[in-house]
Nucleic acid binder design. Structure first.
Lengths: 328, 328
DNA sequence: GTGAATTACTAGAGCGCTCTAGTCACCGGC
DNA sequence: GCCGGTGACTAGAGCGCTCTAGTAATTCAC
């Protein structure tokens, strides 16, 4: 009834258990003929190596623990990319979800119980000191959050540059009076605001920043403020997609046409932005690059004694239908 | 450098390794005093039992493997609920993500490599025969998909009843001419259409079904068809939230007011529906109940020799701001 | 035709736990 | 004062692998 073991395969192929191990690990030391015979015996029995036992015997587990928010589509993309990146480096992934009723500390502990060699935390909310504390035991890579914690690697996108690209795109379309709705105290808000301000000044334009936030409601509020006194504004860069969608809906309800009367750019390229009836121009964070770097940092830290680094990846603009040339 | 083992704790507490095992398993056979001393020694060393070794030694792994779609918010809710349900039954969860570049077969294989005792598959796309095949080796519980496969347990909500509730809600609000936009060949579409038809007929009303689908675009198309000839229609039940959002936007763009001129109900209660500027009345599937049943079925099948069952849970309506009393 | 190198394989100790089968007090009953 | 019972603890095998050391057989150098 129970699954076949290496012993069973060995018996069937008429070789020792050790040889079976060699074959399944793709290690040198077996002739082609035997290799084929062993694999055939294994297939006939429906044998699959027991991952746990395999890891136990080895000093290295080659397991990377990943915590992610089960409700964040952006992190879903990252997880997918991490699987690919880990595989090509010969590592395996262990997932641990974070949710309202399951804290990050809890998720991390469960990963450690499974003997993960390194931790990759997606957009963690843990304090810098908690992160530093974790990093004393194994490599810790924080993805998509700017944080300064001792011994912790950080992989993130360049938010200042992302905002710059958004502004650049609008200027190229002929816009001169461009608004920015900021993200309040959300992570990345400061950088995105700075990127916007710098790009505007460099182009000789006057920055106009409206207080906002990271939710649809924040976008709605900002839009209402904006509509009271639109001035000469013909375009807006919004902190993130969620706020942009709220902003978009409110502005359209008031009779303004997007993109004819007003161009709008979001940030994050979430699934929200890709919905056809929204089809929001936005700034995308390159998940494959982030994932590749995260795995790379984790494995490098595991094998060599190098100090942690902060890797910053360039985001890129995805033009969709909410931006158009200025009509003025 | 490496993590402390049971041996280390035993040495520090001055007892045998076996006793430490007893204490950490909360098994009988240790005095209160020793128990405290061992736990203290463990804490001092920062000891945590190695999950892998623990499972190896045991016949049962008490591990439930879960596959989920990393982009589906509804499944995110389920995963969260599954953690809670598994814990209270003394089981642990192993997560394996399904994504565009990571097939379900792949995800399942990885779970089996980790010696999961049972598989819980969230909204799987695998064929009935593939599912039946899997079920010959270990219990398989399919959640949120109606499927007839030999030896496979199914836990899902009653889609017929969900649709019935939606129609009932509208009738209670005074609506008589109610439209249904169907889900094409998406899972659940037939049941939801049937529920709508039955409820309408039972109330002596005439069903009107418009072809639709499961995406925003499908909703947009259905809305355009509807707008060409609105007739006396004052309310619509849509296959799911995504289609409902597309329908909603298109209908509003045409100048119709929701809910004043038209009431709209979605299905699934996804995060999409909860966005404040959408705030869609919808039918919710009770994730905690689904999760509890899924874990229960898996563990029951594991311990007793019972035939697989199909558990059907009642959904419930969540009234939001897209439904209102009929004005006619 | 002897010794070294190479190839193909095996024996067996470990990995960090669990768990069965003990051992060794100590206690009460008669 | 002997016996069985009970509670507290230990020895050691085993889980399914990996991996180091070692053996046997062949090939090659000269």
């Amino acid at each position: 009834m129970s699954r076949p073991t290496m012993e069973d395969v060995a018996a069937r192929a008429g070789v020792s258990r050790a040889l079976v191990s060699i074959v399944y690990r793709d290690a040198p030391g077996a002739s082609e003929a035997t290799r084929a015979r062993v694999l055939e015996a294994g297939a006939a029995l429906g044998y699959h190596p027991d991952h746990r036992a395999r890891l136990l015997g080895r000093t290295r587990t080659r397991l990377l623990g990943v915590t992610f928010d089960v409700q964040a589509p952006f992190q879903g993309d990252l997880v997918e990319a991490l699987y690919a990146a880990a595989e090509s480096s010969g590592y395996d992934l262990a997932l641990s979800a974070v949710a309202r009723t399951r804290s990050e500390a809890r998720a991390v502990q469960s990963l450690l119980d499974y003997r993960c060699e390194a931790l990759i935390l997606l957009g963690p909310q843990l304090s810098a000191s908690a992160l530093a504390d974790l990093a004393t035991h194994q490599p810790v890579v924080v993805v998509a959050r700017k944080v300064k914690a001792a011994g912790v690697d950080v992989v993130r996108t360049d938010d200042v540059d992302g905002s710059r690209q958004a502004v650049r795109h609008l200027i190229d379309l002929g816009h001169r009076n461009i608004l920015h709705v900021d993200g309040g105290k959300a992570p990345g808000a400061t950088e995105r605001r700075t990127g916007y301000r710098n790009a505007m000044r460099r182009a000789g334009l006057t920055p106009v920043v409206l207080p906002g936030g990271s939710t649809e409601d924040a976008g709605v509020n900002a839009a209402q403020t904006f509509l009271k006194d639109p001035g000469e504004i013909t375009a807006a860069t919004i902190f993130n997609d969620r706020a942009a969608v709220g902003f978009l809906n409110t502005v359209r309800d008031s009779g303004l046409r997007v993109p004819d009367d007003l161009s709008v750019i979001g940030y994050d390229n979430t699934t929200l932005a890709t919905l056809t009836h929204i089809d929001l121009t936005t700034i995308a964070q390159p998940t494959p690059a982030l994932a590749k770097l995260a795995v790379e940092r984790a494995t490098v830290r595991l094998t060599t004694k190098t100090p942690p680094t902060e890797e910053v990846v360039a985001p890129h603009l995805i033009p969709r239908s909410t931006t158009a040339p200025s009509s003025t």
